[in-house]
């Protein structure tokens, strides 16, 4: 009786077959608000409603693993989709199924400071200065925080005479300055911009530009010398789309992300389009800086995850409470 009640309830809750569920990361809220109606306006997307779920990326991946029936995931790092693949919900070679390693767009990490830059922050090195208060995402719970960590690490490695000890020492100083280690990107934004805490916020370029728009005259961007390329990979979840019979729609949705209209929407939301032509058109929008990739610089995501972010890794060794 109990189970029957449950199934009755879930019939009520089950969406019609023409609905897709896009499980996404925290600061992608605005962009998909624009992308979804644009998709519905195309022939392939006619009659398809895309529902959104946003939260910290690792939390979202965990929810999908636990049974959140996402048709597609649109994430901000491949590592979270790899985690989902590990549970067998989608093919391990998911990244090869769509162009640009399944990333229709990418971003990078910049710094955001208070208007007038009172603490004179120009590059990653300034984050280690005593008395600077930093707001970042927890690298254990969000890819946003991982990029911050890796970008600072990339800068430290470029310094003359750098070795593991100097790099660790630098990172230790940076994370000793951390004022708030938020769960997701939007929480960090809220802490810095709305609550007025901290001297520097480190987050995605798209978020930095958006905060500048939302709080004009109160904050300003700082473009560091180097940062990490942050892929925004997407994938359909094989097991879920098979069960729901939405494979074709899910694939069409993700392919739409590569078309010119969608790429334009990414650019308008300050996310870098993978389409070179669209990117060139908006070149003036985006910051100019040296981008390194996780693959070249850190041996790929699984190595980076293991070395730096898993329990007992570098981050755990470095991060000590004051």
């Amino acid at each position: 009786m109990f189970i029957r009640t449950l199934s009755l309830l879930s019939i009520l809750a089950v969406a019609s077959a023409a609905d897709l569920l896009n499980v996404s990361y925290d600061v992608a809220r605005e962009v998909y608000k624009d992308v979804n109606p644009a998709f519905a306006a195309t022939p392939a997307g006619a009659g398809i409603t895309v529902k959104q779920s946003h939260d910290g990326s690792a939390k979202q991946a965990q929810a999908v693993i636990n049974g959140l029936s996402a048709d597609v995931v649109t994430m901000n790092s491949p590592s979270d989709i790899d985690q989902i693949a590990k549970s067998g919900l989608l093919a391990a070679d998911w990244a090869t199924r769509l162009p640009h390693r399944s990333s229709p767009s990418y971003s990078t990490h910049l710094l955001l400071v208070r208007a007038g830059n009172p603490k004179a922050i120009v590059d990653w090195g300034d984050l280690a200065k005593p008395g600077v208060q930093i707001v970042v995402v927890n690298p254990k719970t969000g890819a946003n925080g991982k990029y911050t960590y890796l970008a600072a690490l990339a800068w430290a490695r470029r310094q003359p005479g750098a070795n593991d000890d100097t790099v660790k020492d630098f990172l230790r100083k940076v994370y000793a300055n951390v004022l708030a280690l938020d769960k997701g990107g939007r929480g960090a934004t809220s802490t810095f911009a709305q609550r007025g805490l901290g001297d520097v916020l480190v987050t995605f370029e798209s978020e930095v530009f958006r905060i500048e728009q939302e709080f004009p005259g109160k904050v300003q961007r700082v473009v560091p010398s180097v940062s990490v390329k942050a892929d925004n990979p997407v994938a359909w979840i094989d097991r879920n789309v098979e069960r729901k019979g939405t494979a074709a729609q899910a694939k069409a949705y993700l392919e739409f992300l590569y078309t010119a209209p969608a790429q334009e929407i990414f650019a308008k939301n300050f996310i870098r389009p993978s389409d070179e032509a669209v990117l060139a058109k908006h070149a003036a929008t985006f910051a100019k800086l040296d981008l390194v990739t996780v693959e070249e610089q850190f041996g790929g995501w699984s190595v980076a995850q293991k070395t730096h972010f898993d329990d007992g890794g570098w981050f755990d060794q470095l991060y000590q409470p004051r």
Binding site: L6, S7, L9, S10, L12, N66, G67, L68, S69
Partner: peptide, 19 residues
């Protein structure tokens, strides 16, 4: 979970849904 596999094979959603 305990009932996860069974529920999935019967296409009943409990968690991350209204039930």
């Amino acid at each position: 979970g305990w009932f996860g596999a069974w529920l999935q094979s019967h296409d009943v959603r409990v968690i991350f849904a209204m039930p």
